[in-house]
Design a protein around this nucleic acid. Structure first.
Lengths: 335, 335
DNA sequence: CTGTTAGCGCATTCAT
DNA sequence: ATGAATGCGCTAACAG
């Protein structure tokens, strides 16, 4: 790889001039500018990004922690992050954590060692070990979709999960449902609490009792949906409506219900969450809550950029609006 | 951020000793080692990765070019890449290209500027502009899933697409089908040619004529599947079997067929490609070709690592085996 | 075993 | 407008 010195020699100027020509072309005379540019082309020079970064002390990279790459909803958020990062001149380092704390920690450490300038966390955990806790305290970090556990005060972008679940519940109640099951994803998370609270608040208002046995499941997977639906249907009083905390769970649940001979929505209504691309094409098309994933990613990156530029944040928390998509997997309660 | 000098002063040793303690602990005396380690902890020191990289001239990062993040099949490959990269001590820079040549070029240029040491391309295009062509010629690059266009001689990992399509076609012929439609994805690609050739080779052997009008579609999307299926069904002699070049297309096709009142597979058989996680749960479950995506990613990274370490490659091309998954979207030809 | 010195490639003073 | 010199933070060669 040719370096700046070779260019300077070829052009018969100093390295400083080469550097200037490339960064502030207007500050060098047109004549030398041309000489330098020609030299650059002639020797095939590309500025060494690493070297430039040591100087500036900034890597212009960020790390994104994703619990699961094979999840269209998460990746749509990442898409938004990356697009925006690109605009700001940042690169995205992918951290596939699989929800593994050790991995999260490893990736997060990149910020501590100047490998990245900031961090976006899609999961809810605080990805620094006790050892790094102090160091990590004043790092540029934003959480999107989930909210970082504990009282660290990191900003976050999230959906109005409480409101969305209220809307979902009202939707089902309007169809006459009085018996609700819930198949949850990650239990120990803010999302879980917000959503459950949203559902329960409406049920309370309507005087509907929600018993613990109506809450099943513990992961955002199709398999969990299958298992959860079976569990619910084996109850003495099975629910007529099932709220699933993501679309994969709903897909699994519907599959399980069908194979048990139940019709959706005639016998049981099922609703999901996220509005992943395949949901309109399921049989039946899935009633679900659309999350503005791309926009969430964009906002998260905007916010992170603010933090990395040491600009004050206008808000530390953004609650984005949901859209309830009423499709065919939910319907009137059976007689 | 504390630097190595501060640690050395705190510990009362030279910076070299600090550096050694951290990289080759066994080469310093236990006593100084302890002093240094204490100092490190005391000042909260983390080695600056950027600085270390300038020295070594290696970033220990790679770029992965992905045409579409919201595609479980692609992301499963990326998962394999990342896992393996991790093992080798590399980080993954995400390049969401959307098939955009300009973006591909930008991301690829990172290798030229020492921001990354190598590149894995999931799409088929050669991501260097003419200007960079010479520079790009001896870069560590591997293509996985697709094969890089042109005669650049970059190694690649791919599925036995030809064989897979032969198997798919035989499967359908065994069910008595004689009239085949194909809904294609990206037309201008090696995959497309290989797959089409695979299908045609079997049809030829069986004396079945395949006319151009039976080939429709031009992108790997659900919408393309819907459109393609409609086009095929509007023909005077619609096919009884439709081969889709990925699962999304198949999902769209089945949806369209159903809404036209056709039953799958009783009236029309549909098969897909990739075996994305949702396919077993579609209605009907999709007959498809499983690609060992994780393994493909792993092999790609293995190969790239070889190249980046200047080790000779055992092979320049790896053809991975497919698995035909016969599920319920394909069946006997209607009478 | 440890310290001194030099240098990775670049960008930014400070002179001129 | 340009060049010489300095330093970013770290590591490796060389001494001792």
């Amino acid at each position: 790889m040719p370096n700046i010195k070779q260019v300077s020699q070829y052009a018969g100027v100093s390295t400083a001039t080469v550097s200037r020509t490339l960064k502030n072309p207007e500050v060098v005379s047109p004549k030398t500018r041309e000489k330098v540019l020609n030299a650059v082309k002639a020797v095939g020079y590309r500025p060494n990004w690493l070297a430039a970064s040591v100087k500036s002390g900034r890597s212009n990279s960020i790390v994104v922690l994703v619990p699961n790459l094979v999840n269209p909803f998460f990746m749509r958020i990442v898409e938004g992050i990356e697009k925006t990062a690109q605009e700001y001149g940042y690169s995205v380092l992918l951290g596939d954590t699989q929800g593994n704390a050790e991995l999260e920690h490893q990736y997060a450490s990149m910020v501590l060692s100047n490998r990245a300038d900031g961090l976006i966390q899609l999961d809810h955990s605080y990805p620094f070990s006790e050892l790094d806790a102090e160091l990590g305290a004043d790092i540029a970090m934003v959480s999107v979709c989930e909210r970082i556990k504990g009282d660290h005060g990191f900003p976050c972008i999230e959906l109005d999960n409480h409101g969305a679940c209220r809307a979902l519940t009202h939707h089902l109640i309007n169809y006459g449902h009085r018996s609700f099951g819930v198949i949850a994803g990650q239990i120990d998370s803010q999302i879980h609490r917000d959503r459950l609270a949203g559902i329960k608040s409406v049920l309370d208002e309507e005087g509907i009792i929600f018993t613990d046995q109506m809450l099943v499941g513990s992961s955002y997977s199709i398999e969990n949906g299958i298992k959860g639906a079976r569990e619910l249907m084996e109850l003495e009083q099975p629910p007529t409506a099932i709220v699933c905390f993501n679309d994969d769970i709903a897909i699994g649940a519907i599959h399980a219900l069908k194979s048990m001979g139940k019709r959706v929505p005639e016998d049981v209504s099922v609703v999901g969450f996220d509005n992943i691309p395949v949901t309109p094409y399921m049989d039946p098309p899935l009633t679900t809550v659309d999350q503005p994933a791309l926009e969430m990613g964009r906002r998260a990156m905007d916010m992170l950029h603010q933090m990395m530029s040491d600009k004050p944040l206008s808000r530390r928390r953004e609650l984005l609006p949901f859209r309830l998509l009423e499709r065919a997997s939910s319907g009137p309660v059976p007689q």
